[in-house]
Design a protein around this nucleic acid. Structure first.
Lengths: 339, 339
DNA sequence: GATAATTATGGTATCGATGTCATATATATC
DNA sequence: GATATATATGACATCGATACCATAATTATC
């Protein structure tokens, strides 16, 4: 390893000229450039990122903060982000919170240390404390997976899919297929995302004039095991629904296990539609009909938006809303009132 | 945002004292510390990472380089790595290559810019060019998923599961269940990993004195679609095997699709065992019997080893070999010679 | 109370690249 | 050939924290 001073010494040129030759900024004769480049190669020169960053205040890094790493939902988004950032020569630092608010705050705190040039954050539950921390960092932050109220109140860019609508169209899709006894398998109704989704379910019922029954809302924890267990409990106490709307693929798959063990077939006896449309959907049997939450596009949009702030100097707020869409597969069929 | 000079000015102390008060290194009176801390809070002080790094040469970051992001195989490893690094206050920069060697070289090149303090790399195909680049970086690098020859020749730490053995025990497991006509669904036999695995398959056949038939080796591309397509082609030309050893879960699942479409049941007609034991195994139906490749443990070990190099100054080579193990589920049953 | 040891503080160079400024050389214009 | 313009180069301050060194203030020891 070497630095520009060693190249300067070796070539007899000044450090300034060496820097100019290497960066391409400012005047430098062809001859000097060639000499410098040759010496740089010989000395195995590589610029030191920290020195560049200290002076220029550009880190060429973005932090991605997600709740959970063991879910393909996020990997599609990370992939989308990287597709765009790569073109700008940016790296991504991955931080995940395991859904603990203190870890989210910790990630945001790192923004203030200028470890990155900004952050793309996926949270399930924004609150004032987190918003304060983001505001105080004075760094570009893009919020995704966000419920509307914050999206409008705060001065951060956001890109999201309307969760209320996603559940609404999933539930309505089942109704169009003739289902009326539809259970709702939700993650966590304390978090904002869960609240929004519950709203979507209720809206769909209201529009179809189907009375809401609290007993049809099954609360689990976004895991396969949780989905299975809660569904088993439900089936022990209640009659099986004709369709189930699950808030993610994993719970939907756990739910199928429970149904199978209970002697019920999917989709012949019970239809299932899930949210997320991750790769799990096509691993399951039958293949799951699912609502694509546009993760890859969210990632691409978030990355584009943060680059606009950083590179193009955009300083006004932008909100991007993407439409969820149903991907039809084999787990939902028309309701037959014959059994 | 502020720096130590602004705190110095505000408090009337020198920058040196402020630095000492904040870092806890060196002498500082209780009184001064309190004054400095109060001023730091008031001025919203945060240390600037680049300045620290420039002087100390410590970035507190590790780069993880993986071939592919859309495979849960790697999440588990990333999770394992993060579990350990988190305790050391280290961040991870994620870089993925989409199996393109030039991207691998690009990631390694970033090591020379001292963007991170080291790298954990998962590669399918090490070659001299990559080895040279790693060597030249003079940075701690942990190799995983590595075939033995390089592990012994080169002076880098490595942690891996023996791929030859993994396939050997998978194949042998099928034989113990009475299967003799066993197909081998491999990823890419040009890459070293594929070669090792093919070797494991042949060794198992040899030990059981079953002649090797090249036609029973089905080459796909690690994807579900590839697995399905190649299996369809196989079934059009040949009699179905009684068992299949697939080199990853995705190909195994694609393969099941093909079998189902061909009117064959898993495991009643054809047994399947896969490598990786990712979450896909329990999403599939029937649940896949699979060889756990110890991804999480590989990650934990790799992270521990790199921290030993960086923090404890270990300067001798270490090789960690983990044993793959079979997780029995529902996709392999005993061969019945009755049909 | 004198000396030694400990603690506290400020001054300053350093990490390595960037960028401004001044000066020197080469080229263009009349 | 004289002047104006473009190009080339070196000197030096800067980014912000760290760490070494010298000196000052406090405490411990006899």
């Amino acid at each position: 390893m070497s630095n520009i001073y060693q190249i300067a010494e070796k070539t007899g040129l000044s450090p300034s000229t060496v820097a100019r030759a290497l960066s391409g900024n400012g005047y430098c004769s062809r001859k000097s450039r060639e000499i410098v480049l040759a010496a740089a190669k010989e000395l195995h020169y590589s610029p030191v990122a920290a020195a560049k960053t200290l002076k220029s205040k550009i880190t060429n890094k973005i932090m991605i903060c997600i709740p959970d790493i063991c879910n393909p939902y996020y990997f599609k988004m990370i992939d989308g982000i990287n597709q765009v950032l790569e073109r700008y020569g940016y790296y991504t630092i991955l931080s995940y919170t395991n859904r603990k608010p203190e870890k989210e705050l910790q990630a945001i705190a790192s923004l203030r240390e200028r470890i990155t040039d900004g952050m793309i954050i996926v949270s399930f539950d924004f609150n004032e404390k987190i918003m304060d921390a983001i505001r105080e960092s004075e760094m570009p932050v893009i919020l995704t997976n966000l419920y509307e109220s914050y999206a409008y109140e705060e001065n951060f860019d956001c890109v999201y899919v309307d969760h209320t609508k996603a559940i609404y169209i999933a539930t309505t899709y089942c109704m169009r297929k003739g289902h009326r006894r539809i259970a709702f398998l939700v993650g966590n109704t304390q978090e904002q995302t869960g609240k929004e989704r519950l709203l979507g379910y209720r809206k769909a019922l209201d529009h179809a004039k189907i009375p809401f029954e609290p007993g049809m809302v099954i609360e689990a924890d976004y895991t396969k095991e949780g989905g299975k267990q809660k569904m088993q409990e439900f089936l022990r106490k209640s009659e099986a629904p004709s369709a189930i709307v699950a808030c993610n693929d994993l719970m939907g798959i756990g739910c199928m296990d429970a149904l199978r063990e209970h002697g019920l077939r999917v989709p012949e006896d019970v239809s299932i539609i899930t949210l997320d449309n991750t790769d799990y959907c096509t691993c399951a049997y039958p293949k799951l009909t699912s609502v694509d939450m546009m993760q890859e596009q969210i990632g691409q949009n978030a990355a584009t938006m943060i680059m606009e702030r950083i590179k193009d100097g955009r300083n006004y707020k932008k909100i991007t809303v993407l439409e969820p869409r149903i991907v039809e597969r084999d787990s939902v069929i028309s309701f037959k009132n014959t059994h």
